[in-house]
Design a protein around this nucleic acid. Sequence first.
RNA 1: GCCGAUGUAGCUCAAUGGUAGAGCAACUGACUUGUAAUCAGUAGGUUGGCGGUUCAAGUCCGCCCAUCGGCUCCA
Length: 638
Amino acid sequence: MSSEEITVTLRGSIRKAAKGTPIGELFEREERRTLIAARLNGKLVDLSRPLDQDATIEGVSIDSPAGIDILRHSTAHLMAQAVQSLYPGTQVTIGPATEEGFYYDFARSTPFTSDDLPKIEQRMRELARADEKIERMEMTRDEAVELFARMGEHFKVEILRDLPDDRVSIYRQGDWMDLCRGPHVPSTGWIKAFALLSVAGAYWRGDERNAMLSRVYGTAFPDQASLEEHLELLKLARARDHRRLGRELGLVLFDSRAPGSPFFLPKGAIVVNELIAYIRRLYARYGFKEVITPQIFRNELWRTSGHWELFRENMFLTTDGENAGGELDYALKPMNCPAHAVLYASEKRSYRDLPLRLADFGRLHRAERSGVLHGLTRVRAMTQDDAHIFCTLDQIAQEVDSNLKMVREVYQALGFEQMELKLATMPEEHLGSEQTWRRTEAMLAEAMERNGLSYQTNPGEGAFYGPKIEIYVPDALKRRWQLATIQLDFNMPERFGLEYVSSHGTAEQPVMIHRAILGTIERFLGVFIEHTGGLFPFWLAPEQVRVLSLTDKVESYASELAARLEREGLRVALDARNEKLGFKVRQAELAKVPYIVVAGEREAAAGTISLRRVRGAKAETMTVEELVATLKSEPLPG
RNA sequence: GCCGAUGUAGCUCAAUGGUAGAGCAACUGACUUGUAAUCAGUAGGUUGGCGGUUCAAGUCCGCCCAUCGGCUCCA
């Protein structure tokens, strides 16, 4: 028995323990059933960690957020163990927990395919059943380098060489070991509910100049029921995929002859046009002036703007017919800003003209790499609700505030509660001095703080001409997409030699603020389809009302009704087909038409209709006038 | 771009190397229908494209195109 005692604080109560006692033994037997790790003075550690000095400890249960992360990380290890026992010669690299699961990247000559997953899963189950103890060991970094070099784990050696610490931890389960910071579940038996989901290629350290690794994704939960619930959610999310809904609802078409470039069908065009109409109503209120600018510019413009230097690989280069086959001396615009700079410079500007807010729904084209295209959310042809504000230094704060206000107004109107703000800072490839960058970054940071908005930093992700406030919204599968953006730019005005005459008669350089609220409309629509499941608010619904006739005896009553609603400015369709009512109702429901109006003989006789609101609510009978009033009372934002 | 997978009728999917099918949609007809699928019939295809192997290719091989899952949430 050690005579040395230390003091442990556990849930506010203080007790003594012998020095060297494993943390896990300090908890009650009952609690230990769900305990997989602990916090030692706030730091996550294994339950087997012996206490060597006075400390405050806390249990981490398997179903707490931190516990689930640990479980998933341990599951990643279990997978690596399974993989190395099944496929000798495969090197391990890294295997972190992610928001919804985990992955592990392996280095091997032939990548895994999804056919390998069941086999790996099977081995994992065997290893979990063996319930091997997971033990932590420490050694010096040099010893670890030697160990992993001997094991042929060259990626681990590389990781070790980059670690700052002298001592590193190694985890062992059975005869398998891995370099790892930990902590881990006490034994493999804790890993019960897991599934391997997909395989993918991934570059070592995410850099395409490095080796291609084979990544396996999976997920794990404290119990089988939660796992099944999660898999069910994934299935539901797939059903909400905008690429599926976009086609099913007749909104969008993709064709391999125009990769990354959506066709908007008549219904999709209505939604896009309504969104733009909404933004135009806001422009009137927020003082923006809309302009229309050219599509194709001579390269001279792109050289001036810096796009030629820093954005060319994302641009479609072209030429005129005369020069066909010759020099590509024109390019399709990937952004509107240079055009607006040209427009600004076309007149002598005074401080009295500022702020000058130029809006543009111009169509943009970007040569995105083929592998990144993704439905509507990552496209090559796009329309933004883009605008550029030319203003004085003193006006920046008020302009940024006003745009943040507009962002909030729009996202609230469209039902997005979850948005994330980020401050994207100076990228490696940039124009202008670092000093200017840091100053403008600070201005944006202050603006968000001033408006009570919390944000995270996205280092190195700014545009090449200036830092950005980025607003992200998640899609159905919780992938985040950047929509709105507000960017400060001192470079474009400099490069285009923009000026205004100050009140003192001196020539000054204006600042340019690039901003978009919906961002790219294509992407916005993609995210919005998933957000709403295709059930748009009334003002955006491509078809707002569908009139269903019951039999051909009431066809004329129904068609007159439809004509009446159309005269009221509503988007109406008439379904007078020779089908049963149930069938027509079903089709209208599937088409997500917000109002379904049924006209039968009873209604025709009484001059009424039967109204069914979307999602199977109970039908209500009302007069035609009441119907018109109901429909016309639907709100229109802006 | 890179790694892997996939590509068959408008859509969702079948088809040992041996005559390309089904359901839904479309079209025609019957039924006159009451709030999420009436019945019957008809038509629909250079199996993504080009080339190759084979007596024979949707199926095997090569190249190309497109689509899908991914490509630093730190051992």
